[in-house]
């Protein structure tokens, strides 16, 4: 899918910019590893919000496609969105959260990432 290709490029750019901003004089390997770990640790919630226009079956299909979920799980989350206004889809680090938000938005779903506090 085109969306995956775009995200791969996005991650490459993002990783490149992170490496650029690492401070090289103080324990460079440890600093870089620490920054990478921080980006990968679960710290963000991927949330899908209700809107009055996306079809229910479409939302279910997108969840199945993006997350690889079985239909029953995808439908459960779709109903949460529909009935409760939102559904928590995934906990992830920064990069993975960005990936999922991008994929969901590329299908037109109203998805955001929020800090897991």
């Amino acid at each position: 899918m085109a969306g995956t290709d775009i995200y791969d490029a996005l991650v490459l750019v993002y990783n490149f910019s992170m490496a650029e901003t690492a401070v090289p004089l103080v324990l460079p390997e440890q600093e870089t590893r620490s920054a990478t770990q921080a980006a990968l640790e679960p710290g963000y919630l991927v949330i899908c919000w209700d809107d009055p226009v996306n079809l229910m079956d479409y939302v279910t299909h997108v969840f199945m496609t993006v997350f690889g979920w079985p239909q029953a799980k995808a439908k459960h989350h779709m109903l949460q969105v529909h009935q409760q206004g939102k559904s928590l889809l995934h906990r992830a680090g920064l990069e993975h959260a960005e990936h999922y938000v991008h994929r969901l938005q590329s299908y037109g779903l109203t998805a955001t990432m929020e800090r897991d506090e």
Partner: peptide, 25 residues
């Protein structure tokens, strides 16, 4: 990218990348 206005500034770079990715798509 986020509804958290207070945190949005910290995600500025990621937000820009997202805009560019959507534009490319």
């Amino acid at each position: 990218l986020t509804k958290d206005e207070a945190h949005a500034a910290k995600l500025n770079h990621a937000s820009q990348l997202l805009v560019e990715a959507h534009d490319k798509q």
